[in-house]
């Protein structure tokens, strides 16, 4: 696999995850438990859209053929999306959203810290900026998971349930294929097995403080890298892409 091609796919992997999670968090707009939290979640959503845009632009520049950040975001179909499966899972209740945020932002934080050492200048620059945002997302979700885990019986039960439900999607975040092989050999991307070790440490420090337990899940669901999604992505794309599909090229 050529390096350029691998970088293109790697961009999509991160950008797609950010776009879909951003869309999910935006669904909380006007539905947050308190006004402050409503804003916090939509702030994070906008951070993620911003990160996605940077990488879509990079990907579009590699692809050529008049591709743009918008055409990549709005005109690909479900099977062409290679986001991590965890981000497309529905918001559920507030505890569920916070647990998903914890699991994903701790992955992102560790990934970005490694990408900051990339031989690719574009990835390096991106990661340097994005890691600050990811650290804040991790802080925000960690605080909430600890509060909810230590809170009432009800909040503890819901938070533990969220971890049990979401855990089956976590292995998917660390799946690698020929794209990773190529980029690891060029010193452009990290080995996700290493990221996984850092990730489990940061997640466990939070769950331990929250009094929550990591489930033993023999059943694992993977497929993000190959564009094989859970039933939820199609529904998100319907909403996300509607405008560009109904009015091609519309802008404001």
């Amino acid at each position: 696999m050529k390096t350029k091609e691998a970088i293109y796919t790697y961009c999509l992997r991160i950008a797609d995850s950010n776009l879909i999670l951003g869309q999910r968090l935006a669904e909380w707009c006007s539905r947050g438990p308190i006004l402050e939290e409503d804003l916090a979640m939509t702030n994070i959503s906008l951070d993620l859209f911003g990160q996605a845009e940077t990488l879509y632009e990079y990907a579009a520049s590699i692809k050529g053929n008049n591709a743009t950040a918008d055409s990549l975001a709005f005109l690909r179909v479900e099977r062409e999306y290679c986001n991590r499966l965890i981000v497309e899972q529905p918001n559920g209740d507030f505890a569920f959203t916070m647990v998903r945020e914890l699991l994903f932002s701790s992955f992102q934080k560790n990934l970005y810290e490694a990408l900051y050492k990339s031989n690719d200048e574009m990835f390096k620059g991106f990661a340097g900026k994005a890691v600050k945002e990811a650290k804040y997302h991790l802080r925000h979700s960690s605080e909430w998971v600890i509060r909810l885990g230590q809170g009432t019986e009800e909040s503890h039960r819901r938070t533990q349930w969220a971890i049990d439900e979401l855990w089956r999607y976590t292995a998917d975040m660390f799946e690698m294929n020929e794209v990773d092989e190529e980029l690891i050999s060029m010193g452009i991307a990290p080995d996700l097995k290493e990221i996984q070790k850092l990730w489990i440490k940061s997640v466990m420090s939070v769950t331990a403080e929250a009094g929550l337990t990591i489930p033993e899940t023999p059943h694992v669901i993977k497929g993000g890298n190959d564009g094989i999604h859970t039933e939820h992505l199609g529904h998100i794309l319907c909403e996300l892409q509607y405008l560009q599909r109904a009015h091609p090229g519309a802008s404001w």
Partner: peptide, 20 residues
């Protein structure tokens, strides 16, 4: 002003609402 349940949440909410 903002609402928050504890010091950490107060700082984060203040950050999210007033320093964006």
């Amino acid at each position: 002003s903002i609402h928050a349940s504890d010091k950490k949440m107060a700082l984060q909410n203040a950050r999210d609402i007033y320093t964006r």
